[in-house]
Design a protein around this nucleic acid. Structure first.
Lengths: 277, 277
DNA sequence: TGAATAGTGTCTGTGAGACAATATTAT
DNA sequence: ATAATATTGTCTCACAGACACTATTCA
């Protein structure tokens, strides 16, 4: 035994155990604006995720989440930020740890543990800033009691995957899904995407994270569209306005030009409150 | 470049990068029954956490969560179960991944990433099964907007710690706390405990996890006490009964002997429903 | 009998769901 | 004028908070 902590540390051999590798993977969500024919109608919105085409084995040519090995002096959060910066050139965006995936065989090369993060971005803020093998995929999500099915489409390619939510009796963990169908995604990334969707839906209801996907000024109609496209259901206008009103402040700006009554622009109250204190 | 995945894998050198070590730490919560003088009164309940005294450096003689390095062929979840079994001799108990803590300097020896799990147990099920350097600590939790303070007491020792919740603008993560005061806990375990308390409080309201800390038969009064001691506030009887009634079924058993009206025993509905289908 | 908990009844206010009604624009 | 969205009004119903009341036991 050693006499004190210093002495102990100087003798400690950190190479004794065989260690897993650790990566940080980032699930980047956004809501895309898609203009369509009728000048009167609003832009359609799509729930979208950022994927990267793998150029190397394993899973060469499959799509995966942006991510990579963490440095020995870098936190997983820092690694996620680094990856995000290099793929989207965005900084200071919302990032939260999602889940740590660590099935022993999730990577065929070796034991790799993936700490996944969820990021929310306003797609309009990044213009032509995507790295060239990255691409946004619109998502259509179908969810029932037992399954989450997602269809992905980036304009050129379209494919789908589905995962099952099976609840084991005593180890119930919301994110312990199981891949049922997957052909075009690398690793266990279907699980990560499904977990992220589930988390986002939940947090939408009891936090203010949605504003991380919004521009500074927005109409309540636009905001409602974002909720609707993520939650995948229509909301009633008056109810939505009631609920959201406390989180948002009216500005004196309006949005015109839509062939219908102009819409007042709002901004997120959060920051404002801090200033006004 | 390699011609196919197999060829690639056979050449892959997994020792190229310097890797962190990975541990699995388990936050075991329970609610302790403490009998007290007056024969009429109900047992007092205490929110409790299981800690282990460290026998080695670093942090020799400080208290920490049960945990340990994961095997190269073992998931963090399996490691958590293994640890739990060895400390409490309990199996098949509720276990969910909490958060992955990975500050670069969180362990003075070397880079160690900790995947933490939260477990809920019914303390009555384990009799004298604790390993000998483990001990239950009753917790008193004080929480306000900015701080969580916890006082721990196992009968012999009493100490407290506190962590601050600071919300950074764009990286808001509920579990990114900061240690303000800590003298007796090893590593960053104050953060883990605070995160777990926060998660448990939340999940109490919208899931059924509480029943993992209950015996098969319980009275609504006892169940209410468990809620009250975890949420740290009194609940109104009629409201509580209304809300909980859908999750629970009445049995024909009663609990007598308390110097007051006997109380009907209930059981959790979850399992029952599956059988009756 | 009385201390203590078990359990029920009911009033009130809040807030969500639903739907109707009005307002305003560009073509 | 019309299609389309913006915005507000209001009715109803469910439900949580609050408090009062009744029920039952055992030293």
């Amino acid at each position: 035994m050693y006499r004190n902590e210093e002495e102990f540390l100087s003798h400690y051999d950190s190479s004794k155990f065989e260690k897993p590798s650790v990566t940080s993977d980032v699930l980047v969500f956004s809501v895309a604006d898609e203009p369509q024919g009728n000048y009167r109608k609003l832009n359609e919105k799509h729930f979208a995720v950022l994927l990267v085409k793998r150029t190397d084995y394993p899973f060469k040519d499959k799509w995966c989440l942006p991510g990579g090995f963490i440095g020995i002096d870098e936190t997983t959060n820092e690694a996620a930020k680094r990856v995000l910066k290099s793929e989207t050139n965005l900084e200071d965006i919302y990032l939260e740890q999602l889940y740590t995936f660590d099935e022993v065989k999730r990577d065929p090369r070796m034991r790799i543990i993936s700490v996944s993060y969820m990021a929310l971005v306003d797609k309009n803020k990044l213009q032509n800033k995507l790295s060239n093998n990255a691409s946004w995929f619109n998502m259509k999500v179908l969810e029932d009691d037992k399954t989450i099915s997602v269809t992905l489409d980036n304009g050129n390619e379209s494919f789908s995957f589905s995962v099952g939510k099976e609840l084991r009796e005593h180890t119930t963990d919301r994110y312990e899904y199981k891949v049922i169908k997957n052909e075009n995604l690398a690793f266990d990334h279907p699980l990560v995407i499904a977990s992220g969707i589930s988390r986002l839906k939940n947090k939408l209801e009891y936090t203010d994270i949605v504003f991380n996907m919004m521009p500074e000024y927005f109409t309540l109609g636009e905001l409602q569209q974002v909720y609707e496209v993520i939650l995948n259901k229509k909301l009633l206008d008056p109810a939505f306005r009631r609920i959201i009103s406390s989180k948002v402040i009216k500005t004196d700006k309006v949005k015109t030009g839509g062939g219908h009554r102009p819409s007042v622009l709002f901004k997120y109250k959060g920051k404002y409150e801090e200033i006004s204190k």
